[in-house]
Every structure is written in structure tokens, then in C-alpha cells.
Amino acid sequence: MIKIADAFKNGKAFVAFITCGDPDLATTAEIIKEISRNGADLIELGIPFSDPTAEGPVIQSANMRALAGGVTTDKIFAMVREVRKQVKTPMVFMTYANVVFSYGAESFISQCAAMDIGGLILPDIPFEEKDEFDGVCKQYGLDLVSLIAPTSKQRIAMIAKEAQGFIYIVSSLGVTGVRDSITTDIDAIVQTIRDNTDTPCAVGFGISTPEQAKKFAAKADGVIVGSAIVRLAEQYGKDAPQKIGTYVKSMKDAIR
């Protein structure tokens, strides 16, 4: 089984997010291959949701385009099963609780395990609600990724102690999207995490440039980039795979 932990075995990890089905699933498959070929350590596959309340405008519109194009969970599963034959980079699904819940958590998660998906990121499942999904994830060997936010404060220790796979540090208040500056004291959050667990942590929300990637990779075990990649998919459509590949390489090179 390909685990999330594998992504953090070769130095600082670069985590790349894409929205499945934007512009279409065939292009998504090509994007996954390019992201993998260009050195990403973990690929976060977004399953679109009608109401992605943690997303800024870039990823939200990618969700809308993908759904308008007829993408469903089953079609995404079929695409990933195919891609998995060639791509061995660790992968996780990022989506909203309702997508998993409505599908049936057991059916969803068991299929994930069968296609070597290492874990799930569900931004609307906080610590207090995680048992419902975490139990099934554990049963099938997936990690349910925990998120820590700038507002988490005294909750960090509690969350870190039970964290599996990796900890997603949300760098800023608000929603996903490119930001000029990140003002949260990431060092303090990482320190509290380290005091409580050996589970690696990566920083996401707002990171888009190699300089930012370098800066935040130095503070944690990796960086997560979403909106900047999704924006390339929006801009270049079917021609996006190469552009995204080049971008991923520049980001991975920056944190080596």
C-alpha cells in the first residue's frame, strides 16, 4: 500500500492539489502524471462539491466547472484506478463530508483503499466529528488528515496527539486562495505540534511562489499548493498538464 507517510520520507514534501474534472477527467489524468513526473511528493485530488465552503473563488469555480462537465465520484474513481497503474506517487482525496457520507463512508473508503489512496482530507470534519469517518479509515488503512488553523490555539495539542498521515496547517484565516503575505506565527504552531507528535506537518492556504514555498517548507515538513495550480488548469485547459508540470518542478526545486 502507498501511504501518506511515504511522501515525507525524502526531505521536504511538495503537496500539489488539483480539482478532478477541470477541464475534464482525461486532462486531470495527464495533470496527475505531470505532477508526479515533476517531483511532487503527495497529490491531493479534489472531488468537486456543489458548495465548497472552505474554498476561495479559484477552486470554487473549478468545482463548478467540473460539476457542470458531468463529473461524479464514480467517474473520478474510474480515472484514478486507471492512472494508478502508472503513477506511484502517494495520493489523497480532498472533498467535503457530504460527498463521502452520501456515497456511504464504507463503500467510499474501501474503494479508496483498493486504488491505493493514502488518506482523506475533509475540511468540514473537525476533531469532534472525526470518529464517524476515522474508524472506517483505520479499518481500511487510510489516514484521515487533521487540520490545524491559526485559531486552533489550545486545541493544537489535542488534535496533534491523534493525527495520522500528516497534519495540514491552515496558514491563514478565511478560504483557500493565493495570498501576498501570511502573518500567522507558523513556527509557534509547528513547535506545539512537534511537542505532541511525530506526525509530519505541511503548510497550505495562500502559498503560490517558489519563495513562499521555500520559506514555509523551512518551517514545517512540507508545503501544500492548490489555487495556483488550479488557476493554471483554468487558464490553459487541455494544455495545462505541461504548464502545471513546469510549475511543480519550480516549486519542488525551491524546497529541496
Binding site: P126, E128, E129, D131, T151, G174
Partner: peptide, 24 residues
């Protein structure tokens, strides 16, 4: 062990981003 709050039978709970947990 996590504890879910605000249940009405199976319904209710707190399905929100971590960012809002301290606020609620």
C-alpha cells in the same frame, strides 16, 4: 476520543472547518 455535540438523534453536530471551532 472525540466527542460530537449538539445531537438531535443522528442529526446536528458541528461539521465546520477547524478555523471556526474555537468560535463556536
Amino acid at each position: 476520543m472525540a466527542q460530537s455535540k449538539g445531537r438531535f438523534g443522528m442529526h446536528g453536530g458541528q461539521y465546520i472547518p477547524e478555523t471556526l471551532m474555537n468560535a463556536v
